[in-house]
């Protein structure tokens, strides 16, 4: 039982990160209709920005977290203008190659400027332990789960109630109709990219102190994010959250009760099974033939 609770806790931490990364990916798809193959790099760049603010500049951890999210929001807007805009409405193939170009550029750019060496990103919460009922974790891990849940709640309120949030929903249903209704597509596109990038930054800055920060972290993240996005339904925000936690728990429990060799396969098995049997995702209302 104790083992089970510990593994569930481990799964929740992993799931939080998957959910945050997948949220941005799914929102960009929902609103802009393009798959951002550089999304793993958004997460990596966000982690480095958080690292620079917190460790190199010595800002308090929460200031660095908010700072990284704001800086990455600006970064997201720049990427939307420079990269996504020229690709908007282009055939799928061109979008893939274009954003892959961005991905290669950011990954190797980070290798050049920050160096390939992993760096430690300590926060004051990494050395505080919580030990209850024989299970053990650091305060930072608890923080990951809590901050993730708060961010998700705020995002939900924004999408439901704010004017721009409603505009985003309208765009994700039908971009052309939304534009005819007088919604300024360019604004919505920029806001979406900004939110997606800042969520990725939050994921990076939250997880950085638990693991290490290096340019390669983007590669492992992106495959998982795709699996989560598909399981939740492409473009489905609630779905991404549920699917993120599902994958986190599935991985953790697979290692615990089956075999650690299978950990990496879980994500892709979920991905393929979903696509074959229910491509619209567990909550899917979206048409499979979007685009």
């Amino acid at each position: 039982m104790q083992n089970f609770i510990q593994q569930v806790m481990n799964g929740l931490v992993l799931g939080s990160v998957y959910a945050l990364i997948a949220l941005g990916l799914t929102m960009i798809y929902g609103v802009l209709g393009l798959i951002n193959w550089a999304h793993g790099e958004f997460y990596m760049v966000g982690a480095f920005v958080g690292y620079i603010l917190a460790v190199r500049m010595g800002l308090p951890y929460f200031v660095a977290l908010v700072g990284a999210m704001l800086i990455m929001a600006v970064f997201g807007i720049v990427v939307e203008r420079v990269v996504f805009l020229p690709l908007r409405g282009r055939p799928n193939m061109n979008v893939i190659i274009g954003t892959l170009g961005l991905s290669v550029f950011l990954l190797d750019g980070a290798n050049l400027t920050m160096g390939p060496d992993p760096v430690r990103f300590p926060s004051i919460y990494t050395d505080q332990f919580i030990r209850v009922l024989g299970i053990s974790f650091t305060v930072q891990r608890l923080l990951v789960v809590i901050v993730t849940l708060v961010l998700i709640a705020v995002l939900r309120l924004f999408i439901r109630n704010h004017k721009l949030g409603k505009a985003m929903r309208a765009c994700s249903q039908d971009l052309q109709a939304a534009s005819l209704m007088g919604i300024e597509i360019n604004h919505v596109a920029m806001i979406t990219a900004a939110i997606a990038a800042s969520l990725a930054a939050a994921a990076g800055t939250l997880i950085g102190p638990i693991f290490l920060v290096n340019p390669q972290m983007s590669i492992a993240a992106v495959g998982k994010a795709f699996a989560v996005t598909i399981l939740g339904g492409l473009g489905n925000v609630e779905g991404a959250v549920v699917a993120g936690f599902t994958l986190g728990l599935a991985e953790s429990l697979t290692v615990a009760y089956i075999s650690s060799y299978l950990k990496e396969i879980v994500a892709f098995a979920i991905l393929i099974t979903t696509l074959v049997f229910k491509p619209e995702g567990i909550f899917g209302k979206h048409s499979v033939e979007k685009v």
Binding site: I35, G223, L234, A269, L271, I272, E289
Partner: peptide, 18 residues
């Protein structure tokens, strides 16, 4: 067979990884 566009891309990606 049923999949199109982005769904097919991601499915084939997953197949390759498996």
């Amino acid at each position: 067979l049923r999949l199109k566009g982005s769904y097919l891309v991601i499915a084939t990606l997953g197949f390759g990884e498996i």
